[in-house]
Design a protein around this nucleic acid. Sequence first.
DNA 1: GGCGCAATAT
DNA 2: CATATTGCGC
Length: 504
Amino acid sequence: MTSERVLSVEVTENNAGSFPIGVRILVVESDPTCLRIVSKMLQAFGYEVTTATRVTEALHILREKEDEINLILTETHLPDMDQYEILETLGELSSLPIVVFSADNNESAMIGCLYKGAALYLMKPIIKNDVKNLWQLTYRTKIKTAVSGKGSNSFHGGSSEEKASSVTVGNPSSTMGMTDQKGKRKELEETDNDDEDNNNLTVPKKRKLVWTNELHNRFLQAIRILGIDGAHPKKILQHMNVPGLKKENVSSHLQKYRLYLKREQDAMLKTMIRDCHPPSTFNLQGGFSQYTNSQFFMTASQSEYGNNFQNNLCSPMSVHSLGSVHSPSHVKSNYNGILIPNYGQVTSQSKQLYPSYPNSNHTEIRTTTDGNFSRFGQKGNHSVEEHLNQGTTFSNIGTHGPTFLGNSQQQVQFPLLQPQPLPEKEDESDILDIATVEELELLVMEKEFLEDPNNDLCHFYFSTYKPFLNAYNKALKWPSTPKLALVLYNMESKIPENFESAHG
DNA sequence: GGCGCAATAT
DNA sequence: CATATTGCGC
């Protein structure tokens, strides 16, 4: 066992590297919960996911549109087929790399699968690092198969949008042609290329870039590093270091981002003017300035819905994304006992991201009344419950080079809760089993730090704290609002009696 | 030539 | 709808 973990190359330093755009993975797993979690995990890394619960279904999908799939990730214990048979059948039908995952930890099963053609054997529970670099398997396959077509530099790159077909206009990069072969091969093929034997088991003709959480996180991170002055598309692109990403993508996103910020800010100012309650707790600039790093903490009183909350200093968009960066050790409680980490802030000592919009702000929760921006940086999930954010840090932004399969270093590890007894069945109870503010606070922190699929405890949250999750998800609709405060607000009716006294 | 911005296209 | 593309002024 563990051999697959050992097998992984551990590319120490440049772990940030690149990550997949437009890589679609077919996940075959009969257990819906597991399927969901794995899917989510994959999506968090920017993969696109197609799911199947049966082998037959998977076969169907492959027959229909194998060319849209880049990799198969399958459980080994499926109801309709024997484990090795699965591999054989899938292998016959498609030439896609097959990665299996299973709870089987016996060596023979593993070896058997590998022998039967699996490219990789992952053990359940799957963790973040297991899937992080799966795209590289597709890359390998691609190269192998692409050789026939174009010789050397046909790097469809696990990267993104193929400009492949269509293309209304002439061509963007005809001039440069294939000059780029160095460090970052961001450009893809020219418009006219693989005609003859179009090996379409490469990346499909996904042309529109989807700004996933991960992608957006990188975007934000880059901006944060660069500061307002350097936050231009070109630089951002460099810092993001995502293969396949083009400057135009960044520009476009940046444009949207700024627009968003502006609207946020406007709304904020309006509400400030309307009822200018001076910030009761402390003054933003002053209050925050002591923390120059990425850890801010804000106080939030759960008493008032309206105007007691401090807003984030920076991009509301970053609320979700940056959440994962802080270390809980910094979190202290005070005031009402509630202190939550603030996400997104304007770090970069002294320089603010968007000076034109005063960052000092204290506003109401309802800065954006309808929460229509809540989605920024969010993957396009619909059901509220699906809103699980991916926490990821990018400690080594700026380093280049591809990473390899492997679970190298863990970023920030949070000491956390002991595995709780997990009620087998879904607890539909509306009553939260939370006695103190500290517990709740912990829960919020833990959720943010640990919902990270990296941690198995996410199961725990799913099934146990449904009311909390609901409230939390509701809270996400207001990006610039301290989450905990909203969670509290939303849970108001469900907070146990002793709740108040706990922090009184 | 890059950038920001707005309009327009997809 | 989110993203891409284009055109214009800087």
